[in-house]
Design a protein around this nucleic acid. Structure first.
Length: 216
DNA sequence: TATATGATTGCCT
DNA sequence: GGCAATCATATAG
């Protein structure tokens, strides 16, 4: 179980996102020991992406995200954690990609538990089935106890929180549009391991939009 | 200064 | 399948 090298993340976001499938997110927890899960679902967010944080400031200029507001942290060194909160208490974790100075990130959306399931269950009271522990971006941060700003800016190539490879041979990768968006709906930038039970249950945004349109 | 809106989850029918 | 929770951030005024 070796942490992935920084060079792995210093590549185009659209290459890193599918390549992360099958890797392992590890948290060496001070109280609960090893918490780990295999990454089974990711989404890519790029610097010319209308769904990217800070998109508004970019359009009409050079079409790219500027290092302003929270988007500034997307220009950090590759392998840096970008953790932020949506709605109430949902924290999402991204890995910054591309060389330092270029914006890009991969959202980790679902894990298959590998170690520390008991501790994960203790933190996920609402989970009725094993797969509910980590089959969503906000759920996995709860399960691995990274649901806080502590790890924002942390280097994910070093403990206590890192991404590693264990030589897992992954099968087919499926691709859809991303989930939960109102902009950038048509970009097919969600990647997941075909047939894996731990993939999140969300409906891709382009499908959702199509359904809504048909009803009206 | 004021308002609209989520890179979601969980509970309800 | 529908909808409320709930607040920081971004954007408008």
């Amino acid at each position: 179980m070796t942490p992935l090298d920084r060079s792995f993340f210093s590549r185009p976001t659209l290459e890193v996102a599918p390549d992360l499938l099958g890797a392992v997110l590890v948290h060496e927890h001070p109280d609960d020991g090893l918490l780990a899960g295999r990454i089974v679902e990711t989404e890519a967010y790029t610097d010319d992406d209308p769904a990217m944080h800070g998109w508004k400031a970019t359009f009409g200029t050079d079409g790219r995200v500027l290092p302003q507001g929270r988007a500034a942290d997307l220009f950090a060194a590759p392998g840096t954690a970008y953790v932020y909160r949506v709605y109430r208490t949902n924290w999402l974790i991204n890995v910054v990609t591309e060389p330092e100075g270029t914006a890009g990130a991969v959202l980790i959306r679902a894990l298959e538990p590998l170690a520390g399931e008991e501790a994960m269950s203790a933190r996920r009271a609402a989970a009725r089935r094993q797969r509910d522990l980590t089959n969503g971006p906000g759920k996995l941060t709860q399960a691995l106890d990274i649901a806080e700003p502590t790890f924002h800016g942390h280097d994910l190539t070093t403990p206590p929180l890192y991404i590693a490879s264990d030589g897992f041979a992954r099968g087919d990768i499926d691709t859809t549009s991303r989930i939960g968006l109102s902009r950038g709906v048509d970009r097919p930038w969600r990647f997941f391991l075909a047939g894996n039970r731990f993939v999140s249950p969300g409906v891709p945004s382009d499908v959702r939009v199509a359904r809504k349109t048909r009803r009206q």
